[in-house]
């Protein structure tokens, strides 16, 4: 009962945040068109890139063109998720530490990690989410291996993927407590995440391991795409789930550790 009440309270807070940040953005209505155009450009560019990569008709790392479109769709989807939910929240953390306004945040009577992660929504980046989902549906409809159970499993794995991305992003942002001046360490992730627009098997030997175990990009796009295209391997499904749970836990621990060591901007 208490948990449920707490959950409802947090949900309400999140909705209020979302409402406020949405109405702030409606002020800039040109943004909507601008973002829509940007999303279409990005998706079009990705497809053009695939056309170039498949120019010789050979499969890429064992994936056909259409199967890879599923990966590209998921990549676009996750990029939209980052742009809409993670970027507008977590990338303010270093600025807050720098200016000392983090003090206010830590004094709010809600969980600080929750507060920092839900304050803003960038409505317009949801266009990427929609286009990414559209690409996945379009590509999957023409594929033979697609089945209902596989798609459902894929859906679960997408949720795990979002959780992984959130945890990594949150941990990177938390380093702001120590590296005030470095600012957006998350740009590092942004650069490496570009590898996620290809199936991880399209990469040569050791690079593939880097993008699976050191930077878990494979679990974000390749593994869910495997499930959707009907080639899920129990091993990677299990690994994705474990990695998601583990990273969630570690990021939480890391946050508490950071807050304990926070010295506040005294200047």
């Amino acid at each position: 009962m208490r948990l449920l009440r707490r959950l409802r309270r947090y949900l309400r807070v999140a909705l209020i945040f979302a409402g406020a940040s949405v109405s702030a953005q409606l002020e800039y209505r040109a943004n909507f068109l601008v973002n829509l155009f940007g999303s279409l450009l990005l998706a079009g560019g990705s497809l053009l890139g695939l056309t170039v990569l498949y120019g010789d008709g050979q499969p890429l790392g064992g994936w056909s063109y259409r199967e890879t479109v599923v990966v590209v769709g998921l990549f676009t989807f996750v990029q939209g998720y980052i742009g809409a939910f993670l970027y507008p929240n977590l990338n303010r953390m270093s600025e807050e530490v720098r200016q000392g306004t983090m003090d206010f945040t830590l004094l709010k009577p809600v969980d600080s990690q929750f507060y920092l992660s839900t304050r803003n929504v960038n409505l317009f980046r949801l266009t990427d989410v929609a286009i990414g989902a559209g690409l996945v549906v379009w590509a999957a409809r023409g594929l033979e291996g697609v089945s209902l159970p596989g798609t459902l499993l894929g859906g679960v794995l997408v949720i795990a993927a979002l959780w992984i991305v959130y945890s990594v992003w949150f941990m990177l942002s938390t380093t702001a407590f120590w590296f005030v001046k470095v600012g957006n360490v998350t740009e590092l992730f942004n650069g490496l995440f570009r590898a996620g627009q290809f199936p991880v098997t399209a990469l040569p030997g050791w690079v593939r391991y880097v993008f699976t175990f050191i930077v878990p990009v494979a679990f974000v796009t390749t593994v869910p795409a495997e499930a959707i295209t009907g080639r899920a391997r129990p091993g990677s499904v299990l690994a994705a789930t474990v990695v998601a749970l583990l990273l969630g836990l570690i990021s939480r621990r890391f946050w508490h550790f950071a807050v304990r060591n926070y010295t506040s901007a005294s200047s």
């Binding site: 109405s23 002020e27 209505r29």
Partner: peptide, 15 residues
Amino acid sequence: VHEKEPGLVGSLRSF
């Protein structure tokens, strides 16, 4: 300058 009514409804209207 643009004028805006307060609240989400006002925002939608001026959108």
